[in-house]
C-alpha cells in the first residue's frame, strides 16, 4: 500500500463498529453476555442491550463489581464482554482483573472505549494513557489496539472464538479507514502498510493513520518511511520488529498512550534483546493531559502528523550520527 493523504479517507468510530459487531456475534453465540457500567451509550454496548435485553447487564457505576460479575459469568463457561471507558475499565478494577480474569485465564473480553487523550474536553481525569502498560504487565492477558473500524471488526470476530482474556482499546473519535476490506487480523502479527527503507514507524490505534500521512508527506522530502500497524501489542510480532529494524536501522514507535509501558516499551524490549537499534518513542510524554477539543489536545501534546514527523527526523538524525 502506498502512503495516502488521510484527510481524503472516510472515517468511523471504532465504538460504532463495536456496537454493531456485538449484535452480530450475539446472534450466532447464545452463550455470550455483555456488561457495562453506566456508559453503555458511549461504549455502544447499548446496541447489544436493545437486541438481547436478557443477556445484557448494566452494573451501574461499580467497576469492581463489573469485573467480579464478568468473572463469575466466565467461570460458568460463558463468553463475556465488559466495557467502560479505558480509565474506569482498566484502572479502577485492575487488581480484580489480575486476580480473576488474568490469573484464571478467563474468557472475558475487556473492550475499552475513550482511551488516550482524544477524549478531549473531559480532561486529564478521563484521559487514560497508562492502560496498555497496566494490561500488558498481566500474565495471560492479550492486548489489542485496532487502527481503524475495519480492523476493529476483524479483531472482534477473531478473538471472540479464542477463549482467553483480551483487552481491546478504542478511542472516542472517528478514525480514518486505512485498511482494505479484505484485511485479516492475526493475533501476534504486525502488518506492513507501507514499505520503506530509511526509517520504520511502528504504530497502533489512530497513530497508524497519522504515520501513513507522515510517510506520504515525507516522501516529498525524499524520506522513505516504512509504516507498520502493530495492533497486537501482546503478543507482539518480534520477528517483524527485528526485520524492519535490520532493514531501516531506525525505529519510531507511535501511540496515543504514555511513552512509558506501552507500545514503545514493548518494541524497546524486543529491540534491546534481539537487535539494538536507534529508537524514538512518540506518544504522551510522562505527563497528564489537558481539556480541549480532541484534535487540539492531541496537537498540543504532539500527537499529530507534524509531531510524528519531528520524531521521525530525530530518529534519522540519531541514525546518521550512530
Amino acid at each position: 500500500m502506498m502512503a495516502v493523504d488521510i484527510k481524503s479517507l472516510p472515517k468511523k468510530a471504532l465504538r460504532d463498529t463495536y456496537g454493531e459487531v456485538l449484535v452480530e456475534l450475539g446472534k450466532i453465540d447464545p452463550d455470550m453476555v455483555v456488561l457495562d457500567a453506566d456508559l453503555s451509550e458511549s461504549t455502544r454496548t447499548h446496541k447489544f442491550h436493545e437486541a438481547f435485553p436478557d443477556r445484557f447487564f448494566n452494573v451501574g457505576i461499580a467497576e469492581q463489581n463489573l469485573i467480579g460479575i464478568a468473572a463469575g459469568l466466565a467461570y460458568t463457561g460463558r463468553t463475556v464482554y465488559a466495557s467502560s471507558f479505558a480509565i474506569f475499565l482498566s484502572g479502577r478494577p485492575w487488581e480484580i482483573i489480575r486476580q480473576q480474569i488474568a490469573y484464571n485465564k478467563l474468557n472475558v473480553k475487556l473492550v475499552a472505549s475513550h482511551g488516550g487523550v482524544s477524549v478531549g474536553q473531559d480532561g486529564a481525569s478521563h484521559q487514560m494513557n497508562e492502560d496498555i502498560s497496566l494490561m500488558r504487565a498481566l500474565p495471560n492477558m492479550n492486548v489489542i489496539v485496532p487502527a481503524d473500524s475495519v480492523e476493529m471488526e476483524k479483531v472482534l470476530k477473531k478473538i471472540h472464538w479464542i477463549k482467553e482474556p483480551f483487552y481491546v482499546r478504542m478511542s472516542r473519535e472517528k478514525f480514518p479507514i486505512i485498511l482494505p476490506a479484505d484485511y485479516e487480523f492475526e493475533l501476534g502479527k504486525g502488518y506492513v502498510l507501507k514499505e520503506g527503507n530509511d526509517v520504520s514507524v511502528i504504530a497502533c490505534g489512530v497513530m497508524v493513520s497519522m504515520a501513513l500521512q507522515a510517510a506520504y508527506e515525507l516522501e516529498e522530502e525524499g524520506i522513505d518511511v516504512e509504516v507498520i500497524n502493530m495492533s497486537s501489542i501482546k503478543p507482539i510480532d518480534r520477528e517483524l520488529i527485528v526485520k524492519t529494524a535490520q532493514k531501516t536501522k531506525a525505529v519510531v514507535t507511535s501511540e496515543e498512550h504514555s511513552i512509558i509501558g506501552g507500545l514503545g516499551s514493548a518494541v524497546a524490549e524486543v529491540l534491546s534483546e534481539e537487535c539494538p537499534t536507534i529508537l524514538v518513542r512518540h506518544g504522551v510524554e510522562d505527563r497528564f493531559g489537558i481539556s480541549g477539543p480532541a484534535w487540539e489536545v492531541m496537537e498540543e501534546l504532539g500527537l499529530s502528523v507534524e509531531g510524528l514527523k519531528k520524531k521521525i527526523k530525530q530518529a534519522l538524525d540519531k541514525k546518521s550520527k550512530c
Binding site: 453476555v33 447487564f57 467480579g68 460479575i69 463469575g72 459469568l73 466466565a74
Partner: peptide
C-alpha cells in the same frame, strides 16, 4: 461479585 455472576448465569 463472582457468586453473582455465577447466579446470573
Amino acid at each position: 461479585s463472582i457468586a453473582i455472576g455465577q447466579a446470573l448465569s
